[in-house]
């Protein structure tokens, strides 16, 4: 994990800047203090409180009332009752990440190497849709993919849809997740491709590698830090999302995010199970991220 966070191209350890080392401790502490306090008070402390809640037990006979306990059964119950929800969350998020990668790469590539003076404009085009609220856009997708919409009518005309519907199916959810987190995939890949030297890729061609071989052995490895960051920035929010499922998905077969949201905000006294689910989701994501970074990791990630 520390390899993840460290990101240490910290230039020139001590060597040239001895005037910095003089004021080291106190000044650095003062600069860090507000941020550490804020993150401590409003990130760490709430997580601790949530952890306590996840171990609470019910008062027998008083529905909705809980007492402090070390009830790890909440976790067992969360995992057994909602295992399919976890599977769906990670499955849908994984597929959405894959599709986002497939769509994002050519765009990032074109921005880095082909766009020329259009580069700035393309950058704006990638970011701009953010400002039309993502809920408005997701809702727009629910209309575009509706049974009366042109997409479904077109596909049905050629009998390409087995179920004749897209909306309220997992396909619509995955499409929505792909769409919503696509810019998070494009920007890091673009950033790392932009730093790459186009001449190295040309050299691949000069050495008689065909297009695909050049891509696989030269271009892709050079953009790996961006791909890594992009997949994480897409997968993590997608796995915890509930809005796409709510607006595009089926009534049954929800994701973990929906369960947590419902248990917290609408089911009275659902706090402990929802808290246990939240912690399990967070732990699962952190473990996945850790394994993934260990497997494909590079030094610079964040």
């Amino acid at each position: 994990m520390s390899a993840l966070a460290a990101h240490t191209p910290t230039p020139a350890p001590a060597g040239g800047d001895e005037f910095h080392t003089r004021r080291n401790g106190k000044m650095a502490f003062l600069l860090m203090l507000p941020g550490l306090l804020w993150l401590g008070l409003f990130f760490v402390l709430p997580l601790y409180q949530l952890f306590e809640v996840s171990l609470q037990s019910r008062y027998p006979g008083y529905p909705g009332y809980y007492y402090r306990d070390l009830n790890f059964h909440n976790y067992a119950q969360a995992l057994t009752d909602y295992a399919p929800h976890f599977a769906r969350s990670f499955g849908y998020a994984g597929l959405a990440t894959f599709f986002a990668f497939v769509l994002a790469y050519p765009l990032a590539y074109a921005m880095a190497f082909k766009a020329g003076k259009w580069r700035g404009l393309m950058m704006i085009c990638v970011i701009a849709p953010f400002f039309t609220s993502f809920i408005l856009r997701t809702f727009a997708w629910s209309q575009i993919l509706a049974d009366e919409g042109f997409v479904v009518r077109f596909l049905n005309f050629f009998h390409l849809l087995p179920s004749e519907h897209i909306i309220n199916t997992p396909v619509a959810v995955i499409a929505g997740l792909t769409y919503n987190f696509l810019p998070f995939m494009v920007l890091p890949i673009y950033a790392s491709l932009e730093r790459a030297d186009a001449r190295v890729i040309e050299a691949g061609g000069d050495l008689y590698a065909n297009g695909f071989t050049t891509f696989r052995t030269v271009t892709l490895p050079m953009s790996m830090p961006g791909v890594l960051a992009g997949t994480l920035l897409t997968f993590i929010p997608a796995a915890g999302d509930f809005v796409n499922m709510e607006l595009l998905g089926p009534q049954r077969g929800k994701m973990v995010g929906n369960v947590i949201n419902d248990q917290f905000l609408t089911v009275p006294g659902g706090y402990p199970i929802a808290a246990a689910l939240s912690f399990t989701l967070m732990a699962a994501i952190l473990i996945l991220v850790f394994l993934y970074v260990r497997r494909f990791g590079t030094e610079e990630l964040v």
């Binding site: 990130f43 709430p46 409180q49 999302d241 947590i260 917290f264 939240s278 989701l281 967070m282």
Partner: peptide, 12 residues
């Protein structure tokens, strides 16, 4: 995930 941050903030 945002939902975990939201849930923990609500709790605290």
């Amino acid at each position: 995930p945002e939902i975990v941050m939201g849930a923990s903030l609500l709790t605290i």
